Amino acid sequence: MGKSTKLPLAGAALTATLALAACGGDTGGLSAPDEDEQGGQSGTSASLATSWGPSDTDWYLYGAESMALIEESSALDITVQESAGSEENAIRMDAGEVDLGMIDVQGAETALGEHELAALYPISIVLWQLVVGADTDAETPADLDGLHWNAGPIGGGSTQITMDALEALGVTPDYYEAGLGDAVSAYAGRQIEGFSYRGAGVQATGAILEASSSRPINLINFADEDIATVQDQNPAIVPVDIPGGTYSDVPNDIQTLGYWGVIVAAAPELSEDVAYEVTAQFWENIDEVNERLPQTEGLTPEVAIDELLLPLHPGAARYYEEQGIDIPEDMIR
């Protein structure tokens, strides 16, 4: 097994003005572009509803930040809604309740089976932080067996993938199913022994800092053989290092699970022009995207095409082809 992926330590948790964000509510689905008086692709206009994750997670903040940037630089009117996560987003896109959303590809497959969603672009590499109380003395995945532990909320794509990874290792915690905020409260109140958080980058996460302030934490370390076993079940998994000192309770480097399969997706019925416009505005503003979303640093259209695990929307494919990237025909939905 090769060395773990080492990612640069990003800044503190993002702060964002979320005036754009609209929590809940069905604001549309598969909007067609309006005619623009000035013409030209940059004038494509439409009202879009997008769905991301629970409002207390980085994914929701990333959604609000990235969609705000795209809205600012285009004629699109975009709302950001919270959800349980990837599986719910996939179902809502498939049903035409929202136009775009953040999905974990495998989570979408779990939710929809032979789904018909299409990719626009990846959002980042993500990694798991498996938190456990320092007072449990748990250090490895095997130590989670039988512990009352939270893998995530029902409907979250990462929840099922986390459970599948532990099952591949023969580990079965006594699962507690709750959103991140409730899990942190349950951890502080000693109702559970820990919880899983999957997010972008290796920066300290606010929810884990909050948990550690009331009860010291440890992070579960995956040995090389653990990673190899999980990869047999899920080849997309890669090892990633969380640097020691990211949390004051955890002085040593921790090897954990990483994954490239989290993307911004749309239903194929979304207008080709709108899909093109969203994709184009993301990439044409990538420097500012990097400033707002540190986990996208180093991401290029070429990397995106190499890493995408879902076929492209025709509108997105048109943008990539305009950049001189050869797109195999079977990679277009």
Rank of each mutant, 00 (worst) to 15 (best):
R318T: 03
G206M: 05
D135C: 11
W128H: 00
G206F: 08
G24F: 13
Q203G: 15
Y319H: 05
E71V: 07
L100K: 11
A22R: 15
Q255F: 03
V131R: 01
T15L: 13
V132E: 08
T17G: 14
A138K: 02
A13D: 07
E291K: 14
I154A: 13
I325E: 01
E321T: 08
E87N: 05
S213L: 03
E116L: 10
I286E: 01
V289W: 05
I154K: 04
S196M: 12
I192D: 11
E114M: 03
V240S: 09
E307N: 01
Q281E: 08
T44M: 11
S185I: 00
A316I: 02
A75F: 00
G199V: 00
V264A: 03
S31M: 09
I227P: 09
G29P: 12
E167N: 09
G96P: 08
L270W: 02
D273N: 04
T296L: 10
A19W: 13
M67K: 06
L9G: 04
Q191D: 10
P243T: 02
L310M: 10
E97T: 07
S42W: 12
I325F: 00
M67V: 07
A49K: 05
G206P: 08
A95W: 04
A236F: 02
A186W: 11
R333A: 12
T162N: 15
L169E: 04
L144M: 15
L61S: 10
Y175K: 12
T110L: 10
V289T: 10
D232W: 02
I70E: 08
D143S: 14
L310Q: 06
S45E: 14
T296K: 09
Y320I: 14
Q106N: 03
L147P: 09
A211F: 08
I305Y: 09
T110M: 08
A64W: 00
Y175N: 11
V105T: 10
G170D: 11
D36S: 15
N89K: 06
D330C: 06
A19H: 15
N285K: 05
D36L: 12
L312D: 00
A95P: 07
T205R: 13
S185T: 02
I161W: 02
L308N: 04
L48C: 10
A19R: 13
E210N: 14
L147G: 06
N234Q: 05
L130K: 02
D34P: 02
L299F: 15
G25Q: 12
L219S: 08
I161S: 06
L14A: 14
G189P: 03
N290L: 07
L169F: 08
G39M: 08
G156F: 03
I327L: 11
A317T: 01
M102H: 09
S213C: 00
L209M: 04
A168M: 07
Q233Y: 08
D226F: 15
V230N: 09
I227Q: 11
T57R: 11
G298N: 10
P153L: 14
R215S: 10
A118D: 04
R318A: 03
L180G: 07
S55G: 12
S213I: 03
I161K: 04
A119D: 00
